[in-house]
Design a protein around this nucleic acid. Structure first.
Lengths: 199, 199
DNA sequence: TCCGTCACCCTATCACTGATAGCCTATCAG
DNA sequence: CTGATAGGCTATCAGTGATAGGGTGACGGA
């Protein structure tokens, strides 16, 4: 089967992740089977299991990487100069764009149930998610100059509002939304207007 | 096989929906197979197909009913006396409670991808969802005395914020949330504070 | 040069899934 | 009694994730 020019160590693994992400984005996560991934990569289906213990592991890996990419984008957005509202606004923009630009990653990261209690305890997904959320939390802590529960609650509430918009736009694409750009602008505008005020 | 005392017409269908919903809530949608449903009902697996054309139809039916129940609860909450903010607050409370109290229904209704373009066009799910959303929209139109795009955008934005909280609480249950009640109260408080103001 | 190890791949096969085909049985209107 | 209808059954299908067990080429030490 033309065995020449074998991929280097670990190269196949990256290739599988790339291909899987593309298939997820194109056909939806549920529709992508291990056989489809294997065929697209050019190897047999059982060969996938030399690189991942289960098929879920592929999605989990993509999920962690997605969180990391989101973390980097949020960090960058939050670090720019400006008033706290402006920084939060940029962070929100970045968040929403990320979700809409990478729907497959976003779905895996935020909209797929964790296999309840399967993964031991130190879930890498949770850790990656916490890192990304940490950027938002840090902004709130900095602006409010407090690390209390209320500050955490404000950050979590803000996160939820951003997520809600992305999630609904991704899942309910048949819904008669007002113009997407307009809705995003209005949503973020309201979100940032009184974001740091105590409840 | 103890064939006596057959269920009446349509009774089995209801029973299947009841059982399926319970199994969805208990084990998660993905883990529930047609064989498990059939076994719980006490019939053979192929017999399900006498009542539903595909297994998805069970979820779709539950989804529509969920939207209808939500619609009724929102209507009731929105109809009570009070200031617009109070009415919106009650509506939001009802929404969040509904999602958290009926996670299986909520998941099916809001967090499962529509089989892209499979169902002809007049999607019953979309229709049921629009009816439920209509309650929120009507409140905004009444308060603002306008049926323009901005009003629709405000309602959609508010809906998204409520959904975001419910969705994240349901899916990311391993996340270190601040106290749930506190988070809900804070989230709804911020949501309703300036809800009707133009952007 | 030989040999073990390693990374990687294969075919064959498993149990399980949603779904279909074809046939049986209870009920009821005429 | 009879045909129609609702509801059920077993047998079986193709497709799914996963495992078992064995093959192949590159490479480093003896």
């Amino acid at each position: 089967m033309a065995q020449g020019a074998r991929p280097r160590i670990g190269e196949r693994r990256e290739q599988i992740l790339d291909v899987a992400l593309k298939l997820f984005a194109e056909h939806g996560i549920q529709q992508v089977t291990t056989r489809r991934i294997a065929q697209a990569v050019g190897i047999s289906q059982p060969s996938l299991y030399a690189h991942f213990r289960t098929s879920d592991e592929i999605a989990i890996e993509l999920c962690c990487r997605g969180f990391t990419r989101l973390h980097d984008r949020l960090t960058h957005a939050s670090a720019e100069a400006g008033t706290p509202e402006e920084r939060l606004r940029r962070l929100g923009e970045e968040y929403v764009r990320f979700g809409l630009d990478h729907p497959a990653v976003y779905r895996v990261a935020f909209m797929v149930d964790q296999p309840t209690g399967r993964i031991p305890e130190p879930s890498p997904v949770l850790a990656a998610g916490l890192r990304a959320f940490g950027v938002l939390l840090a902004l709130f802590q900095e602006v409010r100059d407090a690390h209390d529960e209320t500050t955490a609650a404000l950050a979590q509430s803000t996160w939820a509002s951003m997520h809600g918009l992305v999630a609904l736009l991704l899942v309910r694409h048949e819904f008669p939304w007002v113009g997407r750009e307009r809705l995003i602008a209005l949503h973020l505008g309201r979100l940032c207007a009184h974001a740091f005020e105590d409840a």
